[in-house]
């Protein structure tokens, strides 16, 4: 099942990239995505059924809007720190615990953290994230966990677990 899903996704991707709907192109795309499927499909898509649940797509859209908003905020934040004459930075690496279980969800959360204001994921060991923070605003683990994870953990739990 997941091999089929991966194959279709690969073919669609190929067609979008080449943007020509001829027979020769279709055959070339099919061969290429078949090769990719055979090599890589075993690492992805552990539950294909999750793809056809509409509530997951809804939460994904909510997450996407939120993510783009915080991404723009992150850029303004960096611009502010860089252009400020005194450079208000107070960097350090903090340890944050997460309650997410699956690898896919953890990867997504780590990527989201990297794109949010002032934080960058250094490493993931079991269920702990090590995060480089450009301006540590609090010393209390509970407070900064909430600050870093924000709403992302909640949304990702709803659509990716």
């Amino acid at each position: 099942m997941r091999y089929v899903a991966f194959f279709i996704l690969g073919l669609v991707f190929w067609l979008l990239l080449t943007f020509k709907l001829t027979v020769a192109n279709l055959i070339a795309g099919a061969v290429a995505s078949l090769l990719c499927t055979l090599i890589f499909a075993r690492y992805y898509f552990t539950g294909v059924v999750k793809f056809i649940q509409p509530q997951r797509w809804f939460w994904f859209l909510v997450y996407l809007v939120r993510f783009i908003f915080s991404c723009i905020k992150a850029n303004l934040d960096v611009a502010y720190r860089v252009l400020h004459p005194k450079m208000p930075i107070r960097p350090g690496i903090v340890k944050v615990k997460t309650s997410l279980k699956s690898d896919f969800a953890k990867t997504l959360l780590a990527n989201s953290i990297t794109m949010t204001p002032g934080t960058l994921t250094v490493d993931i060991i079991d269920d702990c994230f090590y995060i480089h923070w450009i301006y540590i605003r609090s010393e209390d683990p509970e407070v900064y966990t909430k600050m870093i994870m924000g709403a992302f953990e909640k949304y990702i739990k709803k659509f990716a677990e």
Partner: peptide
């Protein structure tokens, strides 16, 4: 402008990606 490699990576990743 930023002092060390970790902070520089922050600026490089966020700004350049967006």
């Amino acid at each position: 402008r930023l002092p060390d490699v970790y902070n520089r990576l922050q600026a490089a990743t966020k700004c350049v990606t967006l």
